[in-house]
């Protein structure tokens, strides 16, 4: 009994409510004429799309930089990589990994600068990160208009310059991970093996990294910076490394998202990608200074499950589309819940 109580306390009521709600939705689905296999396939697919963006939250949370509201920087690096890969006409796996490779230098550069900046503003990271992200998105909006891309699939036909708002990756690396070893059962169920494997691989790398020398030092910085400094860890350096990794994962995450979604979305599109990632890891049980792989996986699954299931189930019951409102309330409510909880001081 007491175990259950402490478990509930640790896990937090909002998460339990969301979990039960999701279970309820899955149970309800067949009764309102929603195909369960198609829904599960959908949830898995969206889980894969978003998981790496959520994973990108982990390093910065661990190193005490808080929730990465500036993930947009990483996403923009990913967009640069993806557009460059299309510009160079890279196709197939070469295109996909080429995009990641091309994004890497940008991600490292942005992350490095961003990390340096965040080191100067300790304690105010989250608000500042948010506005750095926004202003950078707007800056890149100007850049997308004037950078000298010239692949005709990417630029506005009539003007002859300036990138389109959405660029299809069809013919380049559309669903390259999704279709890799994909298992098709029946008409509606597809298991995106490649996608899930890639996510698992990234999560495993992160797991290993957090247990490495650098990783443990980073965690130490996050849980007790004074102690870490006393034991000879360069706090600022650890924080910068965490920001670079986070930014890089943001870049990888958006490329993985694009190959599954089918389009590269430019201009103001990176903005709305950030909040769901933050909300997902918090739903998964992370706090603003502690996160694990379990949090990532559980959180992404719960949040994306909720986003997939509410429109289909609720809409067929109520005949109206309430999913947007539910999404706003749940995701922001979750972030709010995490922000208002007292930060647990770990050993």
């Amino acid at each position: 009994m007491r175990d259950l109580k402490t478990f509930i306390q640790d896990f937090g009521w909002p998460r339990i409510i969301i979990f039960l709600f999701l279970v309820f939705l899955f149970i309800m689905a067949p009764f309102v004429g929603v195909r369960l296999d198609a829904s599960i396939s959908d949830v898995l697919n969206r889980f894969g799309q978003y998981a790496i963006l959520v994973l990108a939250m982990v390093p910065m949370i661990q190193s005490g930089c808080g929730l990465n509201f500036g993930l947009a920087l990483g996403i923009v690096a990913g967009l640069l990589g993806a557009t460059l890969s299309l510009q160079f006409e890279l196709r197939g796996f070469l295109g996909f990994f080429g995009a990641i490779a091309l994004a890497a230098p940008f991600a490292t550069l942005f992350g490095w600068l961003y990390g340096k900046l965040l080191n100067k503003v300790k304690g105010e990271e989250m608000t500042i990160a948010m506005y750095i992200g926004f202003s950078f998105i707007m800056f890149m909006c100007i850049m997308w208009l004037i950078l000298p891309y010239n692949n005709p699939t990417m630029i506005w036909g009539y003007a002859g310059k300036g990138l389109r708002t959405t660029i299809t990756v069809e013919g380049y690396w559309l669903k390259i991970l999704n279709n890799f070893l994909a298992i098709k059962i029946g008409q509606f169920f597809v298991f995106p093996t490649g996608l899930i494997l890639f996510v698992a691989f990234c999560a495993f790398l992160m797991w290993v990294f957090l247990r490495s020398r650098t990783g443990t030092a980073m965690t130490a910085v996050g849980s007790n910076p004074e102690f870490a400094r006393a034991s000879g860890v360069d706090v600022d350096r650890m924080r910068t490394i965490s920001v670079i990794i986070s930014t890089f994962l943001g870049a990888v995450g958006i490329i993985v998202y694009q190959q599954s979604f089918g389009f590269i979305q430019l201009y103001t599109a990176p903005g709305p990608m950030v909040f769901p990632a933050v909300a997902a890891i918090l739903i998964g049980g992370a706090s603003i200074n502690k996160a694990s792989m379990v949090n990532v996986i559980v959180g992404t699954f719960l949040f994306q499950g909720l986003l997939t299931m509410t429109p289909s189930v609720i809409n067929s019951v109520l005949q109206t589309d309430m999913s947007e409102v539910i999404r706003i309330i749940v995701s922001n409510g979750m972030i709010l819940y995490a922000l208002t909880r007292k930060i647990k001081v770990s050993k």
Partner: peptide, 22 residues
């Protein structure tokens, strides 16, 4: 470009002031 620029400046100013302050 002007439109994006003014938003960039708007957000940028907030970021810059917060950074300077912190």
């Amino acid at each position: 470009i002007g439109e994006y620029f003014r938003q960039f400046i708007g957000y940028g100013v907030i970021a810059l002031s917060l950074v300077l302050y912190a």
